[in-house]
């Protein structure tokens, strides 16, 4: 059974007032629930199913703007679902999740009709960024502006403003701020930041992250009554509006 559509709480994404619907087909229940929860936080209406058969039925019968599809599914293989959906002219954007890392696997997925793929394990921020980019390709009006309190970041023009005062950032500072804003109200560990901003997948053993967070603080928090970037001692950093 498909889970009932979960209504998003806030920040609603919509096409002329209607909610954007996303279908998540993933057999790992915990993972599926986390993905759904995160997408809902971003303001999407999300349905979740746990096998290929149900996924195919639901994707064929209901109009989704985007489908997040795992490849290894019970009852009906993800690639098979993908092929059948494309044969039936289902126009939804399809983002494939796969644990298969070889080039051949990726090429096969894209050839079969996937619009993008994401290699497991992935960071939620990346999932969200890809979802947004795919929806934009789909012609869905996506706000390109990330907003926390009076801080705004336009991911298209790369303009950063706070209280309508323009802020200049270096490339790395910008990436760091985008990451923090995409993960607002979530604690990011130093290692996560290092991996996603600098691409280091190991313990760097340096305080580069701290240094850059401080640069960023100077740029966006200095001179404003409310601080947005907070240090969580022993864990990492968080950007929140409190």
């Amino acid at each position: 059974m498909a889970k009932k559509t979960q209504r998003p709480e806030k920040n609603q994404h919509s096409i002329s007032g209607d909610l954007i619907h996303i279908l998540v087909v993933e057999d790992e229940r915990h993972l599926a629930d986390s993905i759904a929860r995160r997408l809902q936080e971003e303001g999407y209406a999300v349905d979740v199913v746990h096998d290929g058969e149900e996924g195919f039925q639901l994707a064929s019968s209901k109009k989704y703007q985007l489908i997040v599809l795992d490849l290894l599914l019970p009852k009906r293989d993800g690639l098979h679902v993908l092929r059948e959906l494309r044969r039936n002219r289902v126009q939804s954007m399809i983002l494939v999740l796969t644990a298969k890392s070889t080039v051949e696997d990726r090429v096969e997925g894209l050839r079969t009709g996937a619009d993008d793929y994401l290699l497991k394990p992935f960071a939620f921020a990346e999932l969200i960024a890809r979802v947004e980019s795919l929806l934009r390709r789909q012609g869905v009006e996506q706000s390109t502006i990330l907003r926390v309190a009076d801080l705004e970041l336009d991911i298209e023009t790369r303009n950063v403003r706070r209280s309508s005062r323009s802020i200049h950032l270096t490339a790395k500072e910008y990436l760091l701020l985008e990451l923090l804003m995409r993960n607002k109200n979530r604690i990011l560990t130093r290692r996560e930041i290092a991996e996603q901003v600098w691409g280091y997948n190991f313990d760097t053993g340096t305080n580069v992250v701290d240094v850059y967070v401080n640069y960023l603080r100077k740029a966006i928090d200095e001179g404003f009554p409310k601080r947005l970037i907070h240090t969580v001692r022993g864990v990492g950093f968080i950007l929140k509006d409190e």
Partner: peptide, 13 residues
């Protein structure tokens, strides 16, 4: 993947 997604969720304030 499951652990990562779960833990990312856990770090939500």
């Amino acid at each position: 993947t499951v652990m990562r997604s779960q833990l990312e969720t856990a770090l939500n304030s």
